[in-house]
Amino acid sequence: MASPQDVPRAELIGCPNCDLLHHAKHVADGERAICSRCHTVLIAPRAAAYNRALALSVANLILVVAAVFHPFLEIHAAGIVNRVSLLDVATSFGSGALVVVSVTSVAMILLVPLLRAVFLAYALAPLALQHRAYPGARWAFRVTQQMKPWAMTEIFAIGCAVALVKVADLARLNFGPAFWMFIVLSAFVLLVDRSLCSWSIWAALDEAEQEPGRGTAPAPTVRP
């Protein structure tokens, strides 16, 4: 490993998990650069990642919006049929503090995945189309990364299956179309997150903002 003094600072990469410095060399598509101490994946570019992630983000956006209005479960009992969509879940809790639970649930199931898809598409579209980065693209990409643990579509899909079993003796339950949308959505979200290499995207955003006459990235703020 080169001593940090010999390398321009822009070519250094610090491991976010153990702070070890590495020289960020060019990593070929499909290969991974791993921290030599804690084995965190530092760089893992994928060919055509932007196009695919952009396409999947748009697909996710459509899926989330469609899933809001379609029922995800329906119940048959004693001649009564009840179908619920996520909007019903959001509005069904009437009493006091429990409203917090339904609002939080719907935010994690719908709002966060929706915002992630929108922001990611916004940040990646110029990279995929080889345009100059849109204003605020850095902020948008950062927010998608930060929201990642709070997007819980796959957990909700499993929750539907558990709910189905839980009331099996009370009534007959069927999956509605939105359930299958959530299954597909969960798979797509996984694919997007797997194909994204944070370091490569940050580097690409740097490049996409360095048009002639634009200068370089904004200078960091330094304490006096």
Partner: peptide
């Protein structure tokens, strides 16, 4: 959340 919305 699902069950309390559904089983009404």
């Amino acid at each position: 959340a699902i069950l309390s919305a559904l089983v009404q």
